[in-house]
Nucleic acid binder design. Structure first.
Lengths: 212, 212
DNA sequence: TTTATTAGTGAAAGCCATTCGCTTATTGTG
DNA sequence: CACAATAAGCGAATGGCTTTCACTAATAAA
């Protein structure tokens, strides 16, 4: 006879079908594939009715927070024990950007609520440790992290949302002459905006930190 | 007899009660005061039923875009004709940040969709002109603007959302030692995160632009 | 004057998040 | 070992949301 799995339509199932981790991971996958989260569809994916979520979670917001956790799980720890400030800056920026770029649709949801998932806090803690070890003054660590995080988020959203957007409609080019000229120039030179941002942040952070 | 105003429950009203501008401005006000937009409540504010919106607008998304337009209307044009690159950088960052800080709740909504409002494009065009005039190479204007915009958005959201957030729960401080140490240090020194970001961007952008 | 268009209304459809009472399995206690 | 307490599902219902569509009355055009 079947040990676990499918039968029994009513009452507690033989083995649990949900867990906070499974919810977070599936929500993240749904965001990647469909671009949004809805509880009915999420429930369907997990072979469960929507009302079941509330045994594991207080509501939609917490599911988004679990998706953040699932995303953060993918970010690798900072590499080596000893790195220059430049290395740390670039590794941090790179790690954040790589994570975000795979699920841009999560960003607007994430940004609408505070960070509370332990895995996310732990990740920031690891980054803070790396900055500390690279000699950053304690009072500048958080500002530096915020700068990198903001830039990574912004760059991801720009690539995701804006790309098509301020590619201005052909006939309207004359309305925004400076903008469309700049647009053409950046396209012609295939500027790597991500590398540009990394350079800006590295130069700016190093200068400002050493100044202090 | 009353020339315009209230009577007539059915059919076209004597004078129009809605306009795209009014919708955008009221939506922005609602975001400032209530922190979110809903069409029923927006309709109530405007003395109208929700279905009326669809005579002026294709849907919720477009209303958000109109709110972006209303926000952008508040941003002053770049000051003087001739400014150093540093001036332009700081004025741009400042203008964006000042606008965003008054309606942080709009940011997650804005970020979920492309920029299409003419006033917003016109604003970016003015910024592009200022960079151009300050001698920025054409292919770096857009990347520089994106960097400033991202940073302004990130700084605003950090102040709005995170403040309470990675103020870690007291008992959990030991779980994130580096983060909470950094948190204490930044609090003790009253670091002005906004000024820090402005310095980082200014130094970084100038270095990277002059390099090219 | 007639006709077309415009800007409102009202009702309804369909999605969504959330709550609650119910059922069945598991866990802990005397 | 019985048996209470708890845990994890389900089903149904509520209330909010966006959007659509047929309607009505005022204005603009022919």
């Amino acid at each position: 006879m079947e040990p676990t799995s499918k039968p029994s339509r009513l009452g507690r199932p033989l083995s649990p079908r949900l867990s906070r981790q499974a919810i977070g991971r599936t929500a993240l996958a749904m965001l990647e594939e469909e671009g949004s989260i809805s509880l009915p569809r999420l429930a369907e994916r997990l072979g469960v009715r929507q009302s079941s979520f509330y045994k594991h979670v207080t509501g939609r917001q917490e599911i988004i927070e679990l998706a953040r956790g699932a995303l953060v799980e993918r970010v690798p720890a900072p590499e080596q024990r000893t790195g220059s400030l430049d290395d740390v800056i670039r590794q941090t920026f790179d790690a954040l950007r790589s994570a975000y770029r795979e699920v841009p649709a999560l960003l607007p949801l994430m940004l609408a609520q505070p960070v509370s998932h332990p895995a996310a806090l732990a990740l920031y803690d690891r980054f803070a440790a790396a900055f500390e070890q690279a000699g950053t003054p304690a009072h500048l660590i958080i500002p530096a992290l915020e700068a990198l995080d903001s830039a990574a988020i912004g760059a991801t959203l720009d690539a995701y949302t804006m790309e098509a957007a301020w590619n201005i409609g052909d006939e309207d080019q004359s309305r925004y002459p400076h903008l469309s000229a700049a647009q053409e120039a950046v396209a012609a030179k295939h500027v790597d905006r991500f590398a540009f941002l990394a350079d800006v942040l590295s130069a700016g952070l190093r200068a400002t930190i050493d100044d202090a």
